[in-house]
């Protein structure tokens, strides 16, 4: 594949974007792609936003992408989808977790969480929306939300020839392999 593909995962510190990015990158690397992955975070542990970018192809130069270049964006949180929409390529896909995490100005009552995000983004781009957190809870572990979203991402990317379940087993916490595989499979069904 000559053309470089760009994936962007955006969310809030603590949502598990980094593990999902790691599994994705490992799978792509083992499949023979050149891969670069960047975490963009300031002080994320302290409530800031987090994004990880994964670029893969025959040869990748820049570790980070520019605006209008993402083939797929996975937003782990709704307002983050809004924040990063201008990074989506024309014709790119966006997967949105229907989940709100208010930021500090909103918590303090100094600002309002924007209303109508999903309607606005759905009208402008190719968007899949679902409640990954609800699915993760139904499976029995709310922390698997990131793997549910990874499943949806892998489906949206449509890259054949990678045994994702093997990669997931090798990279999640011991004893939690099966539940993560279930989360992945449920996520695949959402796109």
């Amino acid at each position: 594949m000559k053309e470089v593909k760009n994936i962007l995962l955006v969310g809030v510190g603590g949502q598990g974007t980094i593990l999902a990015s790691k599994i994705l990158s490992m799978g792509l690397l083992e499949a023979g792609y050149d891969v670069k992955m960047s975490e963009i975070h300031g002080m994320s542990q302290r409530g800031g936003n987090v994004s990880t970018q994964i670029r893969f192809g025959e040869k990748v130069y820049s570790p980070i992408i520019g605006k209008g270049e993402a083939d797929v964006i996975v937003a782990f949180e709704k307002m983050e989808a809004l924040r990063w929409i201008e990074y989506l390529k024309e014709g790119g896909k966006m997967v949105i977790n229907d989940f709100e995490i208010p930021s500090v100005p909103i918590l303090m009552g100094a600002a309002k969480y924007p209303q109508g995000i999903l309607a606005d983004l759905t009208a402008k781009a190719n968007v899949s929306v679902f409640e990954a957190s609800t699915i993760a809870e139904q499976i029995g572990n709310s922390k698997t939300m990131n793997i549910v979203l990874l499943g949806a991402l892998v489906k949206a990317m449509n890259i054949p020839g990678i045994d994702w379940e093997v990669v997931i087993r090798a990279n999640v916490k011991k004893g939690f392999e099966d539940i993560n595989i279930r989360a992945f499979q449920e996520g695949m069904k959402q796109v």
Binding site: N49, G68, E69, L82, L88, E90, A111, D120
Partner: peptide, 18 residues
């Protein structure tokens, strides 16, 4: 590059003491 723009504004997410 051409970009998509939303009519809505995302509220900033500044770091805060935990």
């Amino acid at each position: 590059a051409p970009t998509l723009k939303s009519d809505l504004d995302a509220v900033v997410r500044p770091p805060a003491m935990c």
